[in-house]
């Protein structure tokens, strides 16, 4: 656990305490504090209100605040745990925690299932996957004939939709990602293992002395 100077406490006023967040995640207190520097940078990039809105999120992802993107919208909605239309610091840290190398495979599988269950029906449906595939093709300016897209969808559902009901349920998804582990590559950010060395620019503000635990 880390001790926390009053100046740093002021720094975090109005935000969840990093010692509490560290106790609930795979991050150390100093890593939570480093994430706070990142959070401050993103949350003040358009409106300096201590919250990340969708424009700021898009700006951070694409360096373009006006770039609407299906996937960015979905990730934003999943990070916006309290459904306020903005991401606060606690949501930011807890959501990024799933991307930590030490986070459980189950948490990563669950997050990725919710990510692709665009309509929140509890199933990943063929139409949703087609919508995402077309969005990816547009984003990367790749062109595929419609029957090629249908062939890819056929093959995907042939592999994933074991009970052939036309949609992928949570169990089928878990089995599918076990057979295709590369699908969870997006769910791990290796440098979250030690942000304080990978992002030294965030450390100089650090005011939390980690007491050896």
């Amino acid at each position: 656990m880390g001790c926390f100077h009053s100046t740093a406490a002021r720094e975090f006023s109005g935000h969840e305490n990093p010692v509490k967040l560290a106790s609930e995640t795979a991050f150390s207190v100093s890593e939570v504090e480093a994430l706070f520097e990142l959070f401050k940078r993103i949350s003040s990039s358009v409106v300096d209100d201590g919250l990340i809105n969708k424009e700021e999120f898009q700006l951070a992802l694409f360096q373009n605040r006006k770039k609407e993107n299906l996937f960015a919208n979905r990730i934003f909605d999943l990070f916006d745990v309290k459904r306020k239309g903005v991401i606060d610091f606690g949501d930011f840290v807890r959501s990024l925690n799933v991307f930590h190398p030490n986070a459980s495979l189950e948490d990563k599988t669950d997050f990725s299932f919710r990510l692709y269950d665009m309509d929140c029906t509890g199933f990943i449906e063929r139409q949703e996957v087609k919508q995402m595939l077309i969005a990816l093709l547009c984003e990367s300016e790749m062109k595929l004939a419609d029957d090629t897209i249908e062939m890819i969808l056929d093959q995907t559902f042939n592999d994933a939709d074991v009970d052939r009901d036309g949609k992928i349920d949570k169990t089928e998804w878990s089995d599918f990602v076990i057979k295709n582990p590369s699908l969870l590559k997006i769910m791990t950010l290796p440098y979250l293992r030690d942000i304080t060395t990978t992002f030294p620019s965030f450390v100089f503000n650090s005011e939390v002395d980690e007491i050896a635990t």
Binding site: L61, I75, Y116, L137, I152, D159, I186
Partner: peptide, 25 residues
């Protein structure tokens, strides 16, 4: 070759799904 990939392999190539971009200056 896209046709040999499953849809999710293609979808996961989206820039928006690489949250490492959040950390870029």
């Amino acid at each position: 070759q896209p046709t040999s990939m499953n849809a999710f392999e293609l979808i996961s190539m989206s820039r928006a799904l690489d949250l490492g971009n959040l950390f870029e200056e």
